[in-house]
Design a protein around this nucleic acid. Structure first.
Lengths: 144, 144
DNA sequence: TTCATCTGTAACAATATCGATTACATGTAT
DNA sequence: ATACATGTAATCGATATTGTTACAGATGAA
C-alpha cells in the first residue's frame, strides 16, 4: 500500500507554477514536466483550485498561485488532493464478533492509537511549506 | 487509500491469543472472533510466526505468543504483516522530465520529507505495546 | 462571428491490491 | 487409519489508481 502519487504531483504542480512565474503554466506544460497526461493535471488543478491554492479559469491558459508560497504547507496539498481521509490512514476490520471480549472492544481500543499515529505523520506535513520545497529545488539547481 | 486491515487483524490475533491463554487458539477460533475466513487467519499467522511473534506448528491446534506481551510493539506487528514498505508510505511519480528544473529535482527534494513523515507515524507505533492494548481491552471489559 | 486554444469533466481501460473463498497437501495425535 | 489442524496456492469480486480519449464550455484574437 502506498498513498497516491497525486500528493507528489500536486507538490510538483505548485512548485512549477512558482518557478515558472513569468511564463504561462498550462496543463500541457505541467503534464510535460510531470510526464503524464494533461487531463490528469487538469483534474488535479481542479482539486487545488477547490482548496483555494491556485487560481485557474476556463478558457484562459495558465494557473497562478492563490496564496503566498510560505502560507501553503504540504498538509494543505495533502488535504487538497484527497489522498487520505481523516482517521482513515489505517483501516480496521469491520464486524468483529461481539461475543468475544476482544471482538467487541478491539475497534474502540485500536482507533485512537491509529489516529494518533496518523496525526503524528500529518504534523510533519504541516511543518513544511512549499517555500521550503522551492528553496530546496533552487539550491540543488545552483549547486549543479 | 488506507493501510490494509491486516495490521488491525494482526493486533486482534495477538490480543486474543493472550486473553485466551488457557484455551486453544486455533485459526477457526480466531476467524470467528475476527469475522473472517480461517485461511485468512492462517496466512496472517504465518506472517506473525515468520516475524517471531508467535509459535504455531503444522498439525497442532493453537498458537502461542513467542514473546512477552510487553516486548511486542505495534510497530513489530506492522512490520510483520507487511502493510507498508520502508520509505514507501507515499508514492512519488516516476520519470518526471529531466529538462525541467522541477522535474529533475522533485524526487530528491520530496523523498526525505515523505520519509520523515512516515517515520513520525512509525515512532508512535513503536511506543505502544500489546500489553497496552490488552490492558485497555481488559479495562473496557471490567467497566461494562 | 468564427476559430483556435484552453479548461472542465465524464467515460473507459489496464493494472494492482485487498479480502474472501475453495481446495488440497502436509503434519500430528489418537 | 482417521480426524483434525496448519500451510499454501489458485481464483474471484470489489475497489483504487493512473492513463487515455472525447467532448462540452469559456475565452480571446482574427
Amino acid at each position: 500500500m502506498s498513498i497516491s502519487s497525486r500528493f507528489a504531483v500536486g507538490i510538483h504542480i505548485l512548485a512549477l507554477i512558482e518557478l515558472n512565474n513569468e511564463g504561462v503554466t498550462s496543463s500541457e506544460f505541467l503534464a510535460t514536466s510531470v510526464n503524464t497526461n494533461p487531463a490528469v493535471i487538469r483534474k488535479l488543478m481542479g482539486m487545488l483550485k477547490k482548496a483555494g491554492l491556485i487560481e485557474v479559469h476556463p478558457g484562459i491558459a495558465g494557473a497562478k498561485l492563490a496564496k503566498e508560497l510560505s502560507c501553503i504547507t504540504l498538509f494543505d496539498v495533502y488535504k487538497a488532493v484527497n489522498v487520505v481521509q481523516e482517521k482513515e490512514l489505517f483501516s480496521i476490520h469491520e464486524s468483529p464478533h461481539p461475543d468475544c471480549p476482544v471482538g467487541r472492544n478491539i475497534q474502540n481500543t485500536i482507533e485512537p492509537l491509529f489516529t494518533a499515529a496518523q496525526l503524528a505523520m500529518e504534523k510533519v506535513l504541516r511543518n513544511v511549506t512549499l517555500e521550503d520545497v522551492v528553496r530546496d529545488i533552487a539550491t540543488k539547481e545552483n549547486i549543479c
